[in-house]
C-alpha cells in the first residue's frame, strides 16, 4: 500500500518532491537498517574509536526518516505513527548532539587535596563547554573494602563539595555513586594508590612549598612503587620508591586498603641515595632542603559529562507511548483473525 501511494504522489510532484519521495522510500529504510545492523556487528570486533562508524548509517536513516515524514501520506493519516517516528528522529539527533558535547576523562586527587580542574587523560566532543575549573571538591578520605582473593568490593569516598557562595557540604561517593557537579559526574575507580608528601625549599630565601608525588596504582602495580619527578631549581629529576614489608590486602580474609603501618622511602638524586622516614629531611643541590612529611593516598576518578540523557529518555518514552497508541488504534479496528477464519 505504502509504495502505491508513494508512486502516485511521486508522479505528480516537482523534482525536489520526487527526490524526497525517493529518499523517503520504505525500501530505503530496509537498506538503512541493514547498514546499521552491519555496522553494529562490526562493533563486536572494534572496541575503541567505534563511534564514528555508526554516524553514516544513522545519518542515512535520519535522512530517510525525515524525507518519509515529509512526503509519506501514511504519516499524515496516522498521528501516533508519526509521533513514534519523530521520536526516533529526535533520538538520532540527540545521540549526535551527545557525541559533540560529551566528556569522558580521568582525574587523580590526593587525600586531603582539592580537585584542580585538571584531567590526566580525556576525550571530549568538539562542542564541550569546559567548566571543570568550576567544579570544586576535596577528597577527604576513602575506605576500600576487599573480599578474600583479594577482590575489591565497596569504595566509600568522603568528599567535601564547595558551592559558588562559599558554602560546603560532605558527601560519600563510590564506584557507582557519583559526585555530580555542574553536570560532571565523578566516580571512584580501582585506580588508586599511595602518595608521599614532601616539603621543598630550593634555598634559604624562598618560602617552602608542599606537594605530593603520586606513585603508580596499588595493588595493580605493587611491584613498581616508584616514580621520578622534577623539583624546581634542581637540574636532575628525583627518583623515589616506597618500601614496606607487610601485606596490605590478604588472600584468605577480608581486608581494607590503607597505608602501611611502617614504611620508608628510597630517594635518589644524581649519584646520591637516601632512606627517608616521615619527618626526615635531606639536602639536595646547592642549598635545597627536602623534607618527607608522610604517606597519603590518592584516588583516580572517572569523569563523565553528557546532558543529553534525560532528553533521550524523554524521546524513548514518547516513542514507546506513541507506538502503544498506534497499536491500540490499529489492532482495535481489525481482528487478527483473517476473514476466512472469522467465517469459520
Amino acid at each position: 500500500m505504502a509504495t502505491i501511494e508513494q508512486q502516485r504522489v511521486g508522479s505528480n510532484g516537482a523534482p525536489v518532491w520526487q527526490l524526497l519521495v525517493w529518499l523517503g522510500s520504505l525500501k530505503f529504510t530496509l537498506v538503512a537498517l541493514l547498514l546499521l545492523l552491519a555496522v553494529v556487528v562490526r562493533a563486536l570486533t572494534l572496541a575503541d574509536g567505534f563511534t564514528w562508524w555508526v554516524a553514516p548509517p544513522l545519518g542515512v536513516l535520519a535522512l530517510n526518516l525525515l524525507a518519509a515524514i515529509l512526503v509519506n501520506p501514511l504519516f499524515r493519516r496516522q498521528l501516533p505513527l508519526l509521533l513514534f517516528h519523530l521520536s526516533l528522529l529526535a533520538l538520532i539527533v540527540l545521540v549526535g548532539v551527545g557525541r559533540m558535547i560529551y566528556l569522558k576523562g580521568w582525574a587523580e586527587v590526593s587525600e586531603g587535596a582539592a580537585f584542580d580542574g585538571q584531567l590526566v587523560k580525556y576525550e571530549a566532543g568538539p562542542w564541550h563547554s569546559w567548566a571543570l575549573d568550576r567544579v570544586r571538591f576535596v577528597n577527604e578520605r576513602f575506605t576500600i573494602n576487599y573480599a578474600p582473593g583479594p577482590r575489591r568490593t565497596t569504595t566509600l569516598n568522603r568528599v567535601r563539595l564547595f558551592d559558588e557562595a562559599g558554602g560546603s557540604r560532605v558527601q560519600v561517593i563510590g564506584d557507582d555513586r557519583p559526585l555530580i557537579m555542574r553536570g560532571y559526574r565523578f566516580y571512584t575507580t580501582f585506580n588508586k594508590g599511595y602518595a608521599p608528601v614532601f616539603q621543598w625549599r630550593p634555598d634559604a630565601a624562598s618560602s617552602p612549598v608542599t606537594g605530593d608525588v603520586r606513585l603508580p596504582p596499588f595493588p595493580g602495580e605493587a611491584l613498581r612503587q616508584h616514580t621520578s619527578w622534577n623539583l624546581p631549581g634542581l637540574a636532575e629529576p628525583v627518583w623515589v620508591q616506597l618500601e614496606f614489608d607487610e601485606a596490605i590486602l590478604a588472600e584468605e580474609r577480608a581486608s581494607v586498603f590503607r597505608p602501611p603501618a611502617r614504611h620508608h622511602l628510597i630517594l635518589r638524586s644524581g649519584e646520591r641515595r637516601f632512606e627517608m622516614k616521615p619527618g626526615d629531611q635531606v639536602r639536595l643541590g646547592e642549598a635545597g632542603l627536602l623534607s618527607y612529611q608522610g604517606l597519603r593516598t590518592w584516588m583516580g576518578y572517572n569523569v563523565a559529562y553528557d546532558w543529553t540523557q534525560p532528553w533521550l529518555v524523554a524521546a524513548v518514552l514518547l516513542a514507546v507511548c506513541s507506538l502503544a497508541w498506534h497499536m491500540w488504534r490499529k489492532y482495535r479496528q481489525r481482528s487478527w483473525l483473517s476473514s476466512a477464519d472469522n467465517r469459520g
Binding site: 569522558k104 564506584d175 557507582d176 557519583p178 559526574r185 566516580y187 572517572n302 569523569v303 563523565a304 553528557d306 540523557q309 533521550l312 529518555v313 524513548v316 518514552l317 516513542a319 514507546v320 507506538l323 502503544a324 497499536m327
Partner: peptide, 25 residues
C-alpha cells in the same frame, strides 16, 4: 510489536542504569 515496545523499554532502563553506575549510557 509488543516485543518492540518492551525491548525499547529494556534498552532504555539499561542505559539509565549504566549511566547511574558508570557515567555513560
Amino acid at each position: 510489536m509488543l516485543g518492540l515496545i518492551f525491548d525499547t523499554l529494556m534498552l532504555m532502563a539499561g542505559a539509565i542504569w549504566a549511566r547511574d553506575a558508570w557515567g555513560r549510557y
